[in-house]
Structure formats: C-alpha cells, structure tokens
Design a protein around this nucleic acid. Structure first.
Lengths: 340, 340
DNA sequence: TTGAAAGCGCTACCAA
DNA sequence: TTGGTAGCGCTTTCAA
C-alpha cells in the first residue's frame, strides 16, 4: 500500500504538504495541490486509518449500540440502523455496530480503546445502567430514547407520551368511549423500556382527560399473543370500539383475528397503529397511524453527535412531536351495526 | 488515558513486557505477569486501537456489507447482522457496518484505509460487480450468497436451489399437481439477486421432474402485492392446490387473503413458506417451511473469515442443505371439498 | 525471562 | 506557501 511518504515523493513535496492538501487545514497553492492530487490518484493512495487515529486523535467512526434481538420491533430498529449509517456516511463517518447484549462493557471497550469518536445508544431503559458509564467516557454520546435522568446526555426520540395521547384523542374525538391498548411484549415493559412506559402514560392521560373507559395489555409479537391480548381486552372492556396498537408485529395478526371473528375495521372497531409508515401501508387496510419516524430520528441522532463533535453544546433533548395520519382504519363510533 | 508506558512504569517493567503479557506471544514469569495485570487493572488501561492497528497490522474489525433497505426481507437481514456481530465478538472482533448502497466504493474505502481485517458481503447478485474488487483487496472476503463466478472467494449460503426443489418435492409427494410460486419482489429479480434465481431454478427443476403444472410470479412485499400475485397465479393455473411462498412479507397478507376468500389452509390450499423459523411460527397457522438459517449462516461466515485470517485455505463454498419442517399448512391434495 | 529501541503512517507544531 | 520533524501508543525484532 502506498503511504503518505510515497505520495510526497511522487509529487515532490513534503509529507506535511500532502497531509494538508488532504485535510484542507492550510492553504495550498493550486499548482501544488494539483500535483499532489495527481500522485494520490495515480498511486491509489488511502490514508491509513490507524495511523490517522493515532496521530490525529479521532477515528471518524461512530459506535451504534442497537438491540439486536431478532424477535422484536425489527422494522423500526432496521430503520434506525439504516438511517444512522447513511447519515454518518454523509458526514464521512463509519459505524461500528454493537449489540446491546454487551451492555456497558461494549461501550467502555470501544470508547476506551479509542475505536470511536462518539456513541449512539438505542433502546434506552427508564433507569438505564449505561448512562453513568456514558458520562464517564471521553467521547460524547447521544441516546435514541429518553431515560428518566439523562444526566446531561443528549436524547433524541419520538415524544411517545404525546403519541399515546394523540392516538386516544383522535379516537375520543370520533366518539369512541372505550379504548383498548395492545402494547409491546411483556419483556419490553419488564426491562423498563422507556418508550413503552411513556406511551402508556400518554395513553392513560388522554383516557382520563376524555373520561373514557380503557384496558391495556402487553402482547407477544405473534398471532397467539395478539389473540390472547385481544381476548383480555374484550373481557375487561365489553363495549370496546377502538384499539390502539403499539406493537408492529401484532398488527397483521390482529387484523386477521378481527376479520375472521367478523368484526369489521373500521365499521365495528377502529384501530390506530403506532408504527413506521411503510408498515402502516403494507397491511390489508391502510392504517390510521402515528408514525414512528425511524429515519428522521436516526439522522437527528447523527446530527446531534456531529455537533457535539464540533464542540457545540445545545438543547440536550429533542422529542419529536407525533403526527397522526388519518387513513382507513378509523371511523366514528356508532357507525357499525353494534351501534344500534 | 493510560498508555502502555504508564502500565510499564507502574509495574516496574518495560513496555515490551506489558505488550507480551497482553498478547501472550512469549513466556512471562508468573510474578511479572501478576504485577503487570495488577497495574493494568489499577490504571484501567486499554490498548489504543489505532496504535495497535498501526504497529500490529490488524484491527480486529470486520466489515459487514448489508442491504440496508428497510423495505425488504427485514427479519432475515436482521438475523444475519445479529449473528455476524455476535459471532465476531466471540472471536474478539468488532463489526463495521456498511450499506450496500455504497457498493464497491465502501468496500474499497474500509479495506484500503486498513479499517478492517476482512469483509463479509451480503445480498450477492449473480454477476456481482463487487467480486472483482474484492479479489483485488489485501483483506480476505466471504460472501453470504452465491454468485455465478465466485473467483476463489469463499461463499456461504443456504442451497436455495435445493430449497426450491425440496418445497416442490414435498408438495408433489403429497399429491399436488399444480403448484404456484409467490416469489420475492420484482426488484430482487431485476437486480439479479442470486438466491431468487437459484430458488426459482430449483423450483422449476422439481416441477419438471415431478411433471407438475406451475405458475410463478414475483410479489411486492405488501398486501396488495400478495393479492395481485395470487390472482395471477389463479388465472394461469386454475386448479392450483399448493403455494410456495418465497417472500416473508407476503406471507401474512397471503394467509389473510386466502382466509377471507374462503380457501382454507391446508384443506383447500397447501402452503410451504421459505423463511426463518420464528416467522413461520408467528403466523396464524404454524407454517410448514423451509428454514432460512440466518443465525447459522452468519456464524458460518464469521468462522470462515477467521480461518482465512489464520491463513488457512479450504473449501471455498459451503451451501447448507435445506431442511423442511412439516407443520400445519400442508395437507394431501384431494383433502378439501374441491377434490370432489 | 526481560529490556531497548526501531519502526508502523500519520498529524500538527515550529520554522522558514 | 511550504518543509522538517517530533510525537501519537503500540508491536516486534535484536540483544542480553
């Protein structure tokens, strides 16, 4: 492999000149620049990343800690990962992928060994054990999620409380008085995953504010899980006319269950989904939904990281307002036969 | 951050001794080792990755080029990514995630700048443009997939041709004489994605060998796509009694469509799915399926990489034999009413 | 069994 | 506008 010295020799300049044409950190005469660039191209020179990291004290690599359980929320996670990688590339950075299974150890490892310049951490729990370790690191971190006590670490997320509220409000304004929530899997709640609790809180707020009846249960991300969850809601809330589904994987099963039990959507049951837009559009019914803007959030997290890397401070946490798209899965209460 | 010199000083030894206790590349007396390890722990020392890469000529990082389109095959891709990261960690390696959108450029970049020791590339096309560039790299590469001409590069994949054959054979042996194939999205075929073509080839082989009638069409990964695809198959193949579905995202919609049009599975239509096991088990019907062993393939790819890194050569391509799990979505032809 | 020291390929400071 | 060069923190010879 060609080194900077080779390039310098070929161009008849010093290595520092080559370094400066590459970094643009000092003015270079057009003539010199041209010769250097020609040599670079000719030799197919690429700076050695390790040498750069050693001398320059940064790697142009970001760590992304993602929940790589293949069972849960797969499309949303994929969106985050995709958008983080894409956004990072647009800032000339690469992404080192960590699984959350490694927990704090992984973060400490890649930060401590200077493999990365900054970290983005997903799937934040309300009282996440990684936050204290993140604060101790030399590198800045951004959370996709919102813990109870961010402790000065930047957060980026959908405002899930507002999302829960919005979904219920929409239903209430359509005359529904009894609303069921099909939530994320039990494991998500048990881990204390922040978005689940926040969504539920917003849901409950709105239910109280509008004086509705409600029932909510977690659901395993399977057909049987969705069925069990729906049954429990039906038991507890006999007149239920609307469902909020905060569980992508339960969506398709749920629609199947409703149809085969003869409950039409939206005539007999209105359904609001909380999911990425493409999921909402890929179902048998175009779902009225509150979008989980995975792409936007990933990009936002990267932007925040970049500004921290530039040494800028600024608003610590940014919660995106939810937006509800009205489509075909909601109708006014009393539209169906059961309305009498 | 503590450096190796700090550790050496604290332990009263030379830096080379510290380096050797870390690498285990030469014998160290128990006493010295103990002192060094104590200093390491005390100082919280972590070797600087860049310095290591520069001096040691390897990074302990693998590149993984994955198709990060969020629209397609999401669960399988997730399985690959998850298992590659997990397996890599078990060999003390990290994973740098590349999107296939960057194409050859991304591979050349991370390899050329010595960011990675080896590359794993997914979503291989039959005549993949990245193969020639991979061959030129200093670092070894492993493909998850099978191009027409691997050119000496190691490949690891499910034997999709055998999978197609197996699915049809199973159906034929249950007496079905007219079999439809719901394939991957058109874009997958258009890109010349190798697994789609290979699967189709195996499907066709078996159809011919068993003297069956067949129809096959790609399907968009949506409800409407599945519906359109099924309609075309019904048109072309009026007596169709069995379906092979090589499209995860079409699976759930398809079952809904069949049910709501009054065709029972498996009594009226048998269905064989090609998908990961958890997908097959999360549907309303426990699907008879040919497993796509994403976890196994990812782990296998990493193992192959590691053996290449050790300088071993060996079998270049490894195709896993498909295994069909009989569950509840297939029955003998002539079971249903239409058998008359 | 251990130490000394020469690089590895850059960046950025100090000079010119 | 450019060059010289001292590190950056490690690994690995070469010696002892």
């Amino acid at each position: 492999m060609a080194t900077i010295a080779d390039v310098a020799a070929a161009a008849g300049v010093s290595t520092s000149t080559v370094s400066y044409v590459l970094s643009g950190r000092r003015p270079i005469s057009p003539a010199t620049r041209a010769r250097v660039e020609a040599s670079i191209a000719e030799l197919g020179y690429r700076p050695h990343a390790g040498a750069r990291a050693l001398a320059g004290r940064h790697t142009n690599v970001l760590a992304l800690a993602a929940p790589l359980r293949s069972d849960i929320n797969v499309p949303v996670i994929m969106q985050f990962v995709t958008s983080v990688v894409t956004a990072a590339r647009s800032y000339d950075h690469d992404v080192l992928l960590l699984t959350n299974d490694e927990g704090s150890a992984g973060l400490e490892r890649v930060a401590g060994s200077a493999m990365v310049d900054a970290l983005i951490v997903m799937d934040i729990e309300s009282d996440d054990a990684r936050i204290p370790v993140l604060r101790r690191l030399r590198q800045p971190a951004v959370l996709i999620g919102l813990p109870n006590r961010p402790g000065g670490i930047s957060c980026v997320d959908l405002d899930f409380a507002a999302a829960g509220y919005t979904a219920v409000a929409h239903l209430a304004e359509h005359g529904h008085r009894a609303v069921g929530l099909i939530g994320p899997p039990p494991a998500v709640y048990e881990r204390g995953t922040s978005y689940a609790t926040r969504f539920l809180a917003g849901f409950v707020d709105a239910v109280e504010e509008y004086g509705l009846a409600s029932a909510s249960h977690p659901s395993e991300p399977t057909f049987e899980g969705a069925l069990a969850c729906l049954n429990r809601i039906d038991d507890e809330l006999p007149g239920v006319s609307a469902l909020v589904v905060h569980n992508e994987a339960a969506l398709s099963p749920l629609l199947g269950i409703l149809r085969s039990s003869g409950r039409r959507v939206p005539e007999d049951v209105s359904v609001v989904a909380i999911c990425p837009e493409d999921v909402a559009l890929g179902l048998p019914i175009r779902m009225t939904s509150v979008d989980i803007p995975g792409h936007q959030l990933g990009a936002l997290a990267v932007e925040r990281v970049m500004s921290l890397l530039r040494g800028e401070r600024g608003a610590e946490t940014r919660l995106l307002a939810p937006s509800l798209a009205e489509r075909d899965s909601c109708a006014d209460a009393g539209t169906g036969p059961r309305a009498g």
